Simulated assay, not measured.
Amino acid sequence: MKIIAIGRNYVDHIKELNNERPDEPVIFTKPETAYLRSVDPFYIPDWTNDVHHEVEIVVKINHNGKNIKPKFAHKYYDEVGIGIDFTARDLQAKLKAKGLPWDTAKGFNGSAPVSQTFIPKDELDLSNLDFSLKVNKEERQKGNTSHMIWSIDEIIAHMSKFFMLKKGDLIFTGTPAGVGKVNIGDKLECFIGEKKMLEVDVK
């Protein structure tokens, strides 16, 4: 299982971080060790003082494929969940300033909590899907897939040019505005629509 993610896929999030709007999807990866089960807490590493939450719709690939055309991409997944792309923003800023890869800021241990439950895509309108994140019962992020720059099918098609997608791979599809720092003792809750899908305690 591998984790492939898209950065800068929501315009408001691009603006809040003062990033440039990309001409094509920005791809980064997280190793398998970044995966965090929904029943496990998230421990803030001792080498960072600024870990941010980024809630995202997550797609689970259902069979192998490469060089997938956009019109066929819908055949490569049949359910979606939700996850958090934890990002060490202080380290990421240092790496970006030097023109270096973000791997350590994005792919550290436990940086990708994912819901245990996934919802069949046939039960959802993936072109108009609300999702959100609360910190200590206060809503911090709220997004809708209609605001994506690149749709789920376009993301899958683009990624498959470079990576063989395999059954069980997880695709993080980008985060809306509202990212922010997490602190020890915080409780994060993630929702698809009104349904709570993921809860993470920060230690």
Results as ranks from 00 to 15, higher is better:
I6T: 11
K15F: 05
W102I: 04
M164V: 15
P41A: 11
G83R: 03
P22T: 11
K121R: 08
I14Q: 00
A177T: 13
L165W: 10
G7P: 00
E123V: 05
Y10P: 00
Q141I: 10
R37T: 15
G174V: 06
V51E: 01
E199V: 13
N144I: 13
F42V: 12
K60A: 13
L188R: 05
D103Y: 13
M1H: 08
H52A: 14
S127A: 15
D125S: 09
H158T: 06
G143Q: 14
I84G: 00
T29S: 09
K195W: 07
H53C: 03
D186M: 07
P113H: 08
L198E: 02
T117H: 10
K166V: 14
A93V: 12
L165C: 10
P113C: 12
Q92S: 02
E54D: 09
F162K: 12
M197G: 02
A112Y: 04
L91C: 07
L36F: 08
A88R: 14
I84V: 15
P45N: 15
G99H: 03
T117P: 01
E32S: 07
I44Q: 04
E32P: 00
G107F: 08
T175S: 06
M159C: 14
L126R: 02
R140D: 06
M197H: 10
D85G: 01
